[in-house]
Design a protein around this nucleic acid. Structure first.
Lengths: 247, 247
DNA sequence: AAGGATTTGTTCGTATGTATT
DNA sequence: TAATACATACGAACAAATCCT
């Protein structure tokens, strides 16, 4: 008879307690048994209510321990870095940023030559299957994975340079591209979001209900020559992306 | 006994069929009954496997009808519009963009004066509770909601202007700000993602497993005066965000 | 147009496994 | 070791929406 299913009513109750501030980050949420008693429902129903909150990313369940409220303290990634931030409002963001301090470490770096995959050929201005160098890596903050990134460069440009080695040297890939006469002068970045594939969830150690932010950066040298495409897969619960531009 | 739970094995099978291209967008996924027969499991187990794919946003279930594979054809939103796109690679994006053509319509527009909420006071350079004008609206594409947006302007700047009325006139709010001597000359945008709250899911008619992309735009006039903060909530399955900037 | 078959959605109950406290 | 709490899986029944004959 209930127009609203029981499990959703319970989930709504719990969600309100969380969003209303009654239950704060780290606080335990009532257990399945507690909900069975409180609402007089079967375990499956209590379980479904708790599962809904997990799927929304509001809570985190651990076997034997219980279910707790999650928090959000993002890392800030700035797309454009050149402008002086102090000019335009030191102004607090609407989100509290757990900024800086903690350095990004690189993990699981692989560098190899591959045939250019179909989706990148147009953006790199080369043919499908043409050789590209791929720098694939994982970023950690305080030992926890937060982002995956793979950079692609046409082999016709970077072959023989330090970009094809693990250590790109001082200034990194941008500096090497500049030495090759192909300094990137213009970037375009595209971002979308979706739920992670199992492989991504594993590599980023994502909890259920955590979407990923996908960012693709396209870089061009003078004259419109494509020199880089980077595909990033970021933990949506850890990242805040920022871009800055004139009106 | 199974190291990998049954429902996950089944989900993995189905996922592979989808990602491998065997099942394409719009195709029906085996029903609960079919899975019960094929794998010899109870309904709850088959159901959980199907539910996992729905939660990942890969499929969409409709009662009485069945479960089908979802597609992704995003709308492109450009943050910065000034640069000539043709200069930097007509280059295809890594994602197929169902670009342009279809206009954005505005729906459910409300304009009202409110006390400034805490999270925006710093960014707007005013005190909590100071009056701000809020333009709240929903955007549709072909009748379907795709984004919610709320723009905030300090009343001290926009009071009396057309920005406080539903119809802002030709050129919209930016043109009116310019007339007031507070043309925005610099923008900063921040983006993050998370699963939607129930209210957001309802307003955007989101299917399960669809995250939202949250974008906040901060606008400043000459001299660093804050003139605008806009909070956007976009359907993650419909939007591709783009920014462009010099290296 | 009516009705039956199909398909997903909800809820109950029961049992057992596994990780944590 | 024992208690707690989440995880998996079974079976059964009914409801609600859709589809097809």
């Amino acid at each position: 008879m209930p127009e609203e299913p029981l499990h959703r009513q319970i989930a709504d109750d719990l969600r309100q307690r969380i969003l209303g501030g009654e239950l704060q980050a780290g606080d335990p949420v009532p257990s399945e048994n507690a909900l069975m008693a409180e609402y007089g429902v079967a375990q499956g129903t209590a379980r479904k209510a708790l599962g809904a909150l997990v799927a929304e990313g509001l809570t985190e369940a651990r076997r034997g321990s219980g279910t707790r409220v999650r928090g959000f303290r993002p890392i800030l990634r700035r797309g454009s870095r050149r402008l002086d931030r102090s000019v335009w409002g030191e102004g607090r963001s609407v989100w509290e940023v757990d900024l800086d301090g903690r350095p990004l470490e690189v993990d699981r770096l692989t560098v190899q030559e591959q045939p250019c995959p179909e989706r990148l050929a147009g953006a790199l201005g080369i043919a499908i299957g043409d050789p590209v160098w791929v720098r694939d890596r994982r970023y950690l903050v305080e030992g926890e994975p937060v982002m995956l990134a793979a950079s692609y460069h046409p082999a016709s440009i970077v072959a023989g340079s330090a970009i094809t080695r693990e250590d790109t040297g001082p200034g990194g890939a941008p500096a090497r591209l500049a030495e090759l006469g192909f300094a990137a002068v213009h970037y375009r970045e595209q971002a979308r979001t979706r739920m992670p594939l199992p492989g991504e969830a594993a590599a980023l150690e994502l909890g259920a209900g955590t979407p990923v932010m996908l960012v693709v950066r396209y870089g061009w040298a003078e004259g419109g020559v494509p020199v880089e495409v980077t595909e990033m897969t970021a933990d949506g619960s850890r990242y805040l992306m920022e871009w800055e531009f004139p009106a």
